[in-house]
């Protein structure tokens, strides 16, 4: 447990408009989703984009975080952190969770591939992923593609070593204020 929750130290920083560390179950996603959609900024369109990025990426935490915690219903749910920063000309959506170190390369390759596409390329890639049969689709993949499409900026991925076999995976997505 302590791994996830000691990595992010700047939870209270001035430009942070919202942050959360804990289990990412469905209740968390819909509750924070709603607050993001309605209270981050005065720009409704911008809020909606941040909300959509949040849903796509946060779902991955509940599936893929290698730290799990029991929730009220007795189900287990992945643990992670998200932070929304308000900067001069953009918002930063940052999401992190611990992963098995061996998954670092896979994640990095995925993001490099996504970043190498232009918008049309990304749209085509998303359609290809969507056409794959259920199960083979790789829920995480299409979510990352969608986040890149929504943000119109490259995905920023980094890893912090926690232990020998464990890393903290951080993905940051920039959302410009001026479309």
């Amino acid at each position: 447990m302590s791994a996830t929750k000691s990595v992010f130290t700047r939870l209270t920083g001035k430009n942070i408009v919202m942050s959360y560390t804990g289990p990412f179950d469905g209740q968390v996603l819909s509750m924070f989703g709603k607050n993001i959609e309605h209270s981050i900024s005065a720009d409704k369109k911008l809020n909606k984009t941040i909300f959509k990025v949040f849903i796509e990426l946060a779902q991955n935490v509940s599936y893929y975080s290698n730290e799990q915690e029991q929730t009220k219903k007795g189900e287990s749910s992945g643990v992670g952190t998200f932070i929304i920063q308000n900067n001069d000309d953009h918002y930063n959506f940052i999401l992190g969770n611990p992963i098995d170190k061996k998954h670092e390369i896979i994640l990095k390759d995925k993001c490099d591939k996504i970043n190498s596409y232009d918008r049309d390329g990304l749209r085509t890639f998303k359609r290809e992923l969507r056409k794959l049969p259920q199960g083979e689709r790789g829920t995480g993949n299409i979510g990352l593609v969608q986040a890149a499409l929504l943000s119109r900026n490259p995905l920023n991925v980094s890893f912090i070593e926690i232990e020998k076999e464990k890393s903290f995976y951080i993905i940051a997505v920039k959302i410009n204020k001026e479309a």
Binding site: K48, F51, K52, I55, E56, Q59, K126, R130, K131, Q134, R137, T139, I142, G143, V145, Q146
Partner: peptide, 12 residues
Amino acid sequence: TYFNTSTSRSIL
């Protein structure tokens, strides 16, 4: 007005 990518597959 909103659907996630998981839903987008079912719409397809």
